[in-house]
Design a binder for these strands. Structure first.
Lengths: 402, 402
DNA sequence: GGTCGATGTGGGAGCGCTCCCAATGACACG
DNA sequence: CGTGTCATTGGGAGCGCTCCCACATCGACC
């Protein structure tokens, strides 16, 4: 195995030839340092010299060696994106793909690179190897964690290592870690409140796995709304599911089979589960929303194409990703700054499946569109805002209780 | 901005302390070289010494610095995974998420890291920056390209740069690039052949974008089957769509509105588009498969939960990913080896939506289960094989015409 | 007892950058 | 004309590894 570059080989058409600052320096008649300054946009270079160097760089199609740069600067310009393997629903739900896309997009804008870390097998030994190799091997400058599980050991590890980390999804037990999130509890509460405003009393909940903090928060919000309305919840109306379409379908069947009678409205804690519920309702010939009303969670564009269109609590997935990257950059630049916590707003899209098709239901809450968070990267509402529905209720950003 | 590590700080509980081969060497009473040998599994170390060094490494929780390693060895142990932004259907279809997962999984097994490259905006300037930064900056050792478009400029660039690259999806015009693929044309042909065996003559096609090579190949296969059966195709029966569910629904509506009459069977070139078609059929009350039979493409597990279950041509997405990583590793180790091309087998799952519900239709082709390709990494059939249907027709791997 | 190979081991010389400091020249001012 | 100041520029010293070569050390063998 020859590792040495094949130097004497005649450089063939376009083939990558190793090139260094020194080469460029010689060709431009300056020193290595000056080329370095030009490459790094250091102002201490005379415009004429800068011009000359830039010309040579562009002629030679030179780009500085990342490894050498990292070694000397102690910065890799790579951030890690960790998607925990424990979440079985990773790719049966477009949440994570959208998140990944949002993160890479934000990084492109900053000339950062993304190292994707995930372990579908969720084997502790693999995770440990991955962790040691990437974090301790200093492959990356910081880490974005896709979604935190309750008692995620990796989260505690990052805190102990004081490694720059931003979690998407709150970490109530880790005040020293930065995170960005939506207010899942409040959002869920207002979904159920909306169903109550439609006159429904027997409201089912198709929830996510309790181990996912966001899912737990949505359970809590559901109960909050029932309590506030003085409704005594039926435990049979609450089904734990798994964020998949199949799981949503199974949960719906379960709700329909409850001895005390089926629900007259259902809140599914994800659009994907709502879609599963939808198919079951179609199968048995139940009319939505007349027989059973339905509201999802996520605000995925694709569910605009069902009939009736799915009402849903939209969360700014791309905004979360952008915010996480921005926060992480800040943390990398100032490692000793205190942790930051941000809450982004959500929107309830009233569409066909909840019974809204024009006039707001009696008693529905209508807030003015909330000003977004102080993080300017959180562009909101989502781009498909204009495609259907109308925001009824939003949760303005606010500092989270730390 | 202090870049220097805060050395004098008392090392707090678990905080990352910079550590080097030299440190370990001193603690173990050996030289830097010996530690390096231990870390790299070089046999030229006495067992006793190795043991001692390993103990110190583990005590100190040491992991060698990736940048220094890369700089000295000229290998980064990172591979790039490029998902072209031009494909709008990236995340509306689980194909890419599954591919990404497959690639990271394969890399974990080899202690390789994955750098995710994608540009949703598909802006040439961004792509160019990304390319220069990552490829020419030598951030990665090699590249897996998710799916090639017809005339993808990036593909030509890789070939010119002689950069280790494997494309998932064939590149007929680039014999010097390695790729792994399925035989889309033949697979599509046998789908349509199967519909013909069911007695259908008026067969619609919901295709993907023509700019995607795989989609084009499926069009060709569709026509092959019609020709072979002596059926004169109706151009109105062929609708170009976009691999999304909404696109599939729109295409189905289009097929239903054709003046010469609706199809009695439809081949959708992806399961996601088939799902869209499904909802339209349900909406108008058409029975599947009695009024209109339907077969999809991809073999996504989620469509096992529809009613009737979706018949589909399954492709080994994870197998493609694994094969690509294996091929890329080989190419990185032996850059001068000739390019490799592999074709993985597909399976037709006969389920409810095509009319198969037990006995094979008259004249259906039944091959013995094909032995998989010579690439041992391609485990096949997919893990959900046991969940429904029965393979009817497989395409054994064969060397591709180069 | 000398020679040879095999087997370990140590240290030097980079890899291609960044950062620091010293040196240079130009210019203004006293 | 001396001196100080500023803007530029060059070169040295690493960053933490890998690789190569030299140098033991130890038997085995003649």
């Amino acid at each position: 195995m020859s590792i040495r570059p094949a130097l004497p080989r005649t450089p063939m058409k376009g083939a990558l030839v190793p090139m260094s600052l020194e080469t460029i320096a010689r060709l431009a008649g300056v020193s290595r340092s000056t080329v370095s300054r030009v490459v790094n946009d250091d102002p201490r270079v005379r415009p004429a010299v800068r011009e000359r160097v830039l010309t040579v760089i562009s002629e030679q199609d030179f780009h500085p060696n990342a490894a050498a740069r990292s070694l000397a600067s102690r910065k890799t310009r790579i951030i890690g994106l960790l998607i925990p393997g424990a979440v079985s629903f990773i790719f049966s739900d477009p949440y994570f793909p959208t998140l990944i896309q949002g993160v890479t997009d934000a990084c492109n804008a900053d000339d950062l690179n993304v190292m994707l870390m995930m372990d579908p097998s969720d084997d502790p030994a693999t995770i440990d190897r991955l962790y040691r190799r990437v974090i301790r091997g200093r492959h990356i400058d910081g880490l974005v964690i896709g979604t935190s599980m309750i008692d995620d050991p990796l989260v505690a590890r990052m805190r102990d290592d004081r490694f720059p980390t931003v979690v998407i999804g709150r970490c109530p037990d880790e005040p020293m870690l930065s995170w960005v999130d939506i207010d899942n509890r409040e959002a869920a509460r207002s979904v159920v409140e909306h169903l109550i405003a439609h006159g429904h009393r027997r409201i089912g909940l198709i929830g996510g796995p309790r181990s996912v903090i966001a899912a737990q928060n949505r359970f809590d919000g559901y109960h909050d709304a029932l309590s506030a309305a003085g409704i005594v919840g039926d435990p049979d109306m609450v089904v734990d599911s798994d964020f998949t379409q199949a799981g949503g379908a199974a949960a719906m069947r379960h709700l329909l089979a409850v001895t005390a009678g089926p629900p007259d409205a259902v809140f599914a804690a994800s659009d994907t589960m709502a879609a599963g519920a939808f198919t079951v309702l179609a199968e048995i010939g139940a009319r939505v929303p007349n027989d059973i009303a339905l509201i999802g969670f996520d605000g995925l564009e694709r569910h605009l194409h069902t009939y009736p269109t799915l009402s849903t609590m939209a969360q700014p997935i791309t905004g979360l990703a952008r915010a996480a990257v921005a926060m992480l950059r800040r943390q990398i630049d100032a490692p000793d700054a205190p942790p930051a916590h941000h809450v982004l707003p959500t929107f309830l899209w009233r569409r066909g499946s909840c019974g809204c098709s024009g006039p707001a239901p009696p008693g529905s809450i209508r807030h003015p569109p909330g000003t977004a968070t102080t993080i300017d990267v959180a562009r909101y509402p989502p781009s498909h805002a204009e495609k259907g529905g109308e925001p009824v209720h939003d949760h303005p950003a606010r500092p989270a209780p730390v």
